[in-house]
Design a protein around this nucleic acid. Structure first.
Lengths: 193, 193
DNA sequence: GAATTATAGACCAAATTATTCGAAGATTTT
DNA sequence: AAAATCTTCGAATAATTTGGTCTATAATTC
């Protein structure tokens, strides 16, 4: 390969598809290798471990998502509701990310019950946001899969943090501030700005 | 459980969801058990093996699909094109089945290239039918996963068999005959009539 | 043509997996 | 209420899978 970074990107894209479909645990290095048409051991020349690949994939997806959100929201003049609507339309992207979540916590499906409970407090649209939250919770716990209580707590904290900028109806809060608050809550510590 | 058959049905529905999502190989008995909120070993009281569960699931899905197709096509007065349209609308059901296929042949993704080649000969709608064919091919080879050449051949044979009743434009062929021919090709040996 | 970069096949220890078995709760039958 | 049967599951297991390593070797660069 000409460039080491280029090959890493190829791995990220290719493995990303498999991860998003089957999740971390169910995705095997053999599959990733096969998709890349390479020997399994060759991948270890570019990545240290399966976890490193996964981390790179999630970071990549988070960056895309963050960019999409930032530019999209900035181009909206009307208030917060339009933003919500946009997020709803972009659900597909979130779905991809929420698959990572499904994957990571494949043994803790109970979290969805929790989300369902929360959902009832808001409109259907908020589901899209909740997916983001899921992702956020997931990202924070990728390597702490075992501790589901910690996960639940992380999700709850994120929800709490989102309540102010997203769900409050106070019109006087300026949209730019809300945007930044939301992005901060969702991506803080995940994506370098 | 009151009734043995009733519990088997529960397993089929529950396991079916997991199978359709992750496929045969990636679905574990632990997952099925967890979804049923039962001990893993209890399932073996009702089913002999994971394969038996899978077979029951696929049979169940095939029966539903067959019934849907039969009643739907029978209620259509205009020619074959309307039927195609219906099939197109019902794509969701087929998607579920095609997931089984993905799952079973998770290492033979090349088949999809083959399908793509075929697709170009027909309209987009035919994709729906092709999914059915995929399913058919899958069903025929569930327990011959290793031999991918045999699979390709099975799919080709099915396609060939479908060409006459489905894709030929000859108006003189009566729709009832076509229907039977199609169902025969697709479900022959799979679902007891 | 030596040194470095890149690839993959054989291999391994650890983990996972489908399945078995026996024991113990239930429930029904006598 | 004892016996017989039905249902459940935890623990054990044998076979397979899996992430990762090591070594040999091909390709590229110097």
């Amino acid at each position: 390969m000409v460039n080491k970074e280029e090959f890493r990107r190829k791995v990220i894209v290719s493995a990303g598809q498999i991860f998003s479909r089957y999740g971390f645990k169910k995705t095997t290095m053999d599959e990733i290798a096969k998709a890349l048409k390479m020997g399994k051991s060759s991948i270890y020349y570019y990545f240290e471990s399966k976890e490193e690949i996964f981390e790179a994939v999630v970071l990549h997806e988070a960056n895309i998502l963050r960019n999409e959100l930032t530019t999209a929201i900035k181009s909206v003049e009307s208030p917060i509701d339009k933003m919500r609507n946009y997020v709803f339309v972009r659900m597909k992207s979130f779905e991809k990310l929420s698959n990572y979540y499904n994957a990571i916590f494949d043994k803790n499906l109970d979290h969805f019950d929790f989300i369902e409970t929360i959902r009832e407090k808001y409109d259907r649209e908020e589901l899209a946001i909740l997916r983001l939250i899921l992702y956020h919770g997931a990202r924070k716990n990728i390597f702490n899969v075992a501790n589901s209580e910690y996960t639940a707590l992380a999700i709850q904290t994120t929800l709490k943090g989102l309540e102010v900028p997203l769900f409050w109806k106070k019109k006087e809060v300026n949209i730019e501030n809300r945007l930044n608050a939301i992005l901060d809550v969702l991506f803080n510590g995940i994506v370098k700005k």
